[in-house]
């Protein structure tokens, strides 16, 4: 019996069989992003900014490398637009005068402290709750995190419309993680340096670039 199928199967657009999420090598991947606020960095990142609905890892050599400054323009823009943002398990006290000076609407900023026990699990759970509640951005500080936990976080991020910034020590740079974007930041000659270790949608740039302080 004649069927209504096309004569050659290879002419079928694979997306009709496998759904719209199939990416073909001939196309540029569509990435939704939020600008970082640093032009040099935006130009280097595929899509031109922090990816939305994905986890971005920021690996820093130590505190004070300028890792939080990377996120401040994003947080300022989101909170001024009325979207809530959160810091989950920051290593120290996020200092309100500095954050306010960066233009962040403090009434839209939530801090979730570390807990004495089960710190990582509680932090991940809290981040997931906030992502489901339509957070604009969630900044999360976790050291020990297994692949399963990171995968869960990535899935929660994918279901949301938020930027998730995961802060970890650069000791974990060699570890492979499901994050969409991995940046390394350190200070050299009294200026912050940023290197893109991994990103979706393009090859990471091999050259370190200078970001504004």
């Amino acid at each position: 019996m004649e069927s209504a199928l096309p004569a050659r199967v290879d002419r079928i657009d694979p997306r009709t069989l496998l759904g719209p999420k199939v990416w073909r090598a001939t196309e540029q991947a569509q990435i939704r992003t939020e600008p970082t606020g640093f032009d040099v960095l935006d130009r280097a990142l595929p899509g031109g900014g922090w990816p939305l609905g994905a986890v971005s890892e920021v690996l820093h050599a130590q505190l004070g490398a300028g890792e939080l400054s990377l996120a401040l323009p994003l947080l300022a823009r989101l909170t001024q637009a009325g979207r809530p943002v959160a810091f989950v398990a920051p290593p120290m006290l996020p200092y309100a005068p500095r954050l306010a000076a960066a233009g962040i609407q403090l009434s839209k900023l939530l801090i979730v402290d570390r807990t004495e026990s089960d710190s990582e699990q509680n932090a991940l759970w809290s981040a997931e709750q906030l992502l489901r509640a339509a957070a604009g951005a969630v900044l999360l500080w976790i050291e020990k995190a297994d692949a399963h936990a990171l995968r869960r976080l990535q899935l929660a991020a994918e279901e949301s419309d938020s930027c998730v910034l995961l802060y970890r020590s650069e000791r974990y740079a060699a570890e492979s993680t499901p994050s969409a974007l991995r940046l390394r930041i350190w200070r050299q000659n009294a200026a912050p340096q940023v290197e893109v270790l991994k990103c979706r949608g393009a090859r990471p740039l091999p050259i370190p670039l200078r970001a504004a302080a």
């Binding site: 996020p94 200092y95 309100a96 005068p97 954050l99 306010a100 403090l106 009434s107 900023l109 939530l110 801090i111 979730v112 402290d113 807990t115 509680n122 759970w125 809290s126 709750q129 906030l130």
Partner: peptide
């Protein structure tokens, strides 16, 4: 929900 699980004082909003 987070306050319920982590404790009342663990979730806060900074004010200058």
């Amino acid at each position: 929900r987070i306050r319920g699980r982590l404790g009342e004082d663990k979730v806060w909003m900074p004010q200058a």
